[in-house]
């Protein structure tokens, strides 16, 4: 079953329902270490077809690391991320053709038009230009984006960039869509559009992983919420299940209760080499103005 749901606004066409609920992705005892920081610790998750899952956590909680592990961009330090298909399973890195990804930065080439961006990624997914155009047109109509397909993305607003990136991620009809902070920096209308889009995908049986640090947004969009804090999965369930587990009356209270310990230091130590780091420290004044204490 593939995501094939954005075609007409009402009524949404459901794809065949068989397969919904089947296991699509398993994350078994996955840990990810970056130099001195353990970005993820013993994560165990199972994602089923048709799930709309919200990954919720603060900055540096490990959401993006988990998403990148799900895309096969990172290799787990320990454990496995497996993609299930046709009664078999394989490391997710080998199954990337079934994924659609919208990174936080959208990743559009500004000298290319929106259509050229979409076509490029579809070609990399082995989709013919004709099929890609057909799919693109369907989705673009739904997002009111047809007129913008031929325009270079250089002048696009954040909302338009997000739309173009979503079409690009869906044009090859993936089985699972991964969205990293899709409403970050968007105005109210554009953010609403993205949320409504994801909801409709869910109604149509699509599988979506939605990473956000906004709890209210996850509550609106997702039927399952995974709370991550300091690299650990603190809770996993439907909004009502989270309230039961934490014995609270609102998700906000539940989130606070689950993440009471202080957030860890998130700076990655391995971003720069040893010499560069030594030199930077040598050339950076450590003392802040009076009353500011000492840096580092």
């Amino acid at each position: 079953m593939r995501i094939n749901i954005l075609v007409s606004i009402a009524p949404l066409k459901h794809v065949e329902s068989d397969g919904v609920g089947d296991i699509l992705l398993t994350i078994n005892n996955v840990s990810k270490q970056f130099s001195h920081i353990e970005a993820l610790k013993n994560v165990n998750l199972t994602l089923n077809r048709g799930d709309i899952v919200g990954l919720v956590g603060g900055n540096g909680a490990g959401k993006t690391t988990l998403l990148r592990l799900m895309c096969g961009l990172y290799h787990p330090t320990t454990g496995q991320v497996l993609f299930h298909r046709d009664s078999s399973q394989a490391p997710v890195a080998e199954m990337r053709r079934f994924l659609g990804v919208v990174p936080e930065a959208t990743g559009l080439y500004y000298r290319l038009t929106a259509w050229e961006n979409i076509r490029y990624h579809s070609r990399l997914h082995g989709i013919s230009d004709e099929e890609c155009w057909k799919n693109t047109l369907e989705i673009a109509k739904d997002l009111d984006f047809v007129e913008s397909l031929g325009r270079p993305t250089r002048g696009f607003s954040k909302g338009m960039r997000q739309k173009a990136a979503i079409i690009r991620a869906l044009a090859h009809k993936p089985e699972i869509l991964l969205l990293d902070e899709p409403t970050g920096g968007l105005d109210v209308t554009s953010a609403r559009m993205v949320r409504s889009l994801v909801k409709r995908m869910g109604q149509a049986g699509g599988t979506v992983i939605y990473s956000t640090h906004k709890l209210a947004e996850a509550e609106q969009v997702c039927d399952r919420i995974i709370i991550i804090h300091n690299g650990e999965v603190r809770a996993d369930g439907s909004p009502s299940e989270l309230l039961d587990i934490t014995q609270t009356t609102s998700l906000e209270e539940a989130y606070v209760k689950l993440t009471m310990d202080a957030a860890r230091e998130t700076e990655k130590e391995d971003v720069e080499g040893r010499i560069a780091k030594f030199w930077r420290r040598m050339m950076t004044p450590r003392k802040l103005p009076e009353g500011g204490g000492e840096d580092e």
Partner: peptide, 13 residues
């Protein structure tokens, strides 16, 4: 720098 590499690396290549 432009953040386009992440999307590219997600492609099945």
């Amino acid at each position: 720098e432009r953040g386009t590499l992440e999307a590219l690396l997600c492609a099945p290549i």
